[in-house]
Design a protein around this nucleic acid. Structure first.
Lengths: 346, 346
DNA sequence: CTGTTAGCGCTTTCAT
DNA sequence: ATGAAAGCGCTAACAG
């Protein structure tokens, strides 16, 4: 920048003015400065600029996700990035794979880098650090999951109502033995979905049978294994409610592998690509990650812009998408595993 | 930091030493400093630190993708982020949706933020800016697509060989009328895949029929429409080769919608989740985005660490995954479009 | 082992 | 309308 000033025969401040588009520079001078910039290949240095500037915005935000590879997360990221870009802000995304330690590390790294704000999908466990950073003045919005304490903006999905809706859908079809496969117990979303399942059973006057419940299940493989385990119960389920997208996929794979995909009803929480092309197509309780991300981003930027209103709590509704797998009738016979066993359906 | 020094009764430099874990500080003093840091809630300021430090690493890299929402991109991002994290480096991801203008903007933004390096999946079109930044000293690695000029490290997929393999697979099954559905003509990957298709036909002594080729097709909906168009040709294809994951999905949806998924053979380029659960399961030429990302990231960090060797050109092989859709025999009857119109072929 | 001084690249403040 | 000087938070270089 010094070189630019020298070459243009202007002062540092003038160059600064031109670079930042501030008014009060003679067109001729401005032209000379621009030429010098062009000629020298000068690049504005944002970090240095932020340093001196009041408030010191870095024009970047942090996004802390479970796993960028999960379709739900990546759609969320997509829209957050888009909203940020419209403001000239870049998004730094970190996957922490449900690891609280990594979450803490990433949060610390965000602080150190002085991002302007953070959107976080809290892992399970302790969130005191989150609270600490927030109280230190960092704008933070929790998305998809409750941070476990008040005082912070949150944008959540109506998990309990959605899960209840999904389970009710199966019960309405006449299913009495409905299995539940859920992810990480202790995670707010997982717990709420489980609560929704319980509430549906309770509403139908059916007791919860522990043999039909698998919790803290992880990933596609885990979902398949859990489904297998549930179907081995003495009095096995005729329907499954899977509380997360990967678990649903795992269950679908398993049912298909044993050739019972048209026999065991299935409703999944969270939609996924191609769910409508499977056979049977998978009935799901759909969330809207784009909506979630957009609201979270807007909330965050409102805070960054100085909004000091009390913490908001925004809840996005879910939608039941009927496709076929959730509308299968309960089988009357006791279910048998394995292939090729003929059975009566009635 | 000044406050910390004052409270600990030490100098700024000593605090700096403690913060950076430099040797040569008396344990007692160090303890006092740590206490003061804790008490005052002091946070190290990385941007300021970078500014003064030699070379001024920002400990961040830029990742320029087509669309973070595409599974291929998000898996790539995942692994890049992981490699970066192991070095304490954060990843700034930007989706530019094949828009060259956005690509330029994002690149400029990366420069302005002084990222330590950039991994870019070049959009089609002009890449002079890429070259310019690279010559200005920014470490850059092109991934998945050729940047259109030499001099820069690239990590590519063997698109042409992979596509040839996929098309050959269909030809070997006896198909003579093989349709091609590809994305953006002008994009290196798309062009290479098309070249692979042509080379396969040539090898079989079959001329390329323009009526069976759809290029510059975009997205799931586009893939479906293109498949529809091809099947309406006077002498329609008995097999389709779709050159990108979304196009494959679109074609699958369409074939299924018209009930001919067991009749028209299909091989897709790029694997996708659940491809093995569809009916028929979809035969694909699989790429390995994780491998691609890992190699690109390692290459980038080698450059960042000062590697000045000539540009590398790394090619990752593809793998044909046989699942069913690509092994369907050519139908002898003339194909019928729509529903119910019978026609004779020969 | 510890502290002082200078200065990274930029923008503020205040003069001119 | 333009510029000189001071300083953002930190660390390199050199003292003590």
């Amino acid at each position: 920048m010094r070189d630019v000033a020298a070459r243009a025969g202007a002062s540092l401040k003038t160059v600064s003015r031109v670079v930042n588009g501030e008014p009060g520079v003679t067109p001729g001078l401005e032209q000379r400065v621009r030429l010098a910039i062009e000629h020298l290949g000068y690049r504005h240095h944002l970090p240095a600029s932020s340093l001196r500037r009041g408030g010191g915005r870095t024009e970047s935000i942090g996004l802390l996700l479970e796993d960028v590879g999960n379709p739900f997360s990546s759609r969320l990221q997509r829209v957050v990035e888009q909203v940020a870009r419209e403001r000239g802000v870049m998004t730094v995304a970190v996957s922490c794979d449900e690891d609280p330690q990594r979450e803490r590390d990433a949060l610390a790294a965000f602080m150190t880098r002085r991002v302007d704000g953070i959107i976080v999908m809290p892992a399970k466990g302790d969130h005191s650090h989150l609270r600490a950073e927030h109280e230190a003045g960092m704008p933070i919005v929790a998305v998809d999951r409750s941070p476990g304490f008040a005082g912070i903006d949150t944008v959540l999905v109506d998990n309990q109502a959605g899960a209840r809706r999904g389970a009710d859908h199966l019960l309405a079809r006449g299913h009495v033995r409905v299995g539940f496969v859920g992810n990480h117990a202790g995670l707010s979303t997982a717990d709420q979905r489980y609560a929704g399942y319980r509430s549906a059973l309770k509403g139908a006057g059916i007791p919860v049978d522990p043999a039909l419940v698998a919790r803290s299940v992880t990933g596609i493989a885990g979902g398949g294994e859990a489904a297998a385990r549930l179907l081995e119960a003495p009095d096995p389920p005729t329907a499954l409610f899977t509380a997360q997208n990967l678990l649903t996929i795992g269950a679908v794979e398993f049912l298909r592998a044993i050739g019972r995909q048209h026999e065991i009803a299935l409703v999944g929480f969270d939609d996924f690509l191609l769910a409508d092309l499977l056979d049977p197509a998978v009935t799901v309780v759909a969330q809207d990650p784009s909506e979630l991300g957009a609201r979270a981003a807007r909330r965050l930027f409102a805070r960054i812009d100085g909004d000091a209103s009390p913490p908001h709590r925004d809840v996005v509704r879910t939608r039941l998408i009927i496709r076929g797998s959730g509308e299968l009738e309960p089988t009357r016979t006791n279910s048998r595993k394995g292939l090729g066993t003929a059975r009566v359906r009635e």
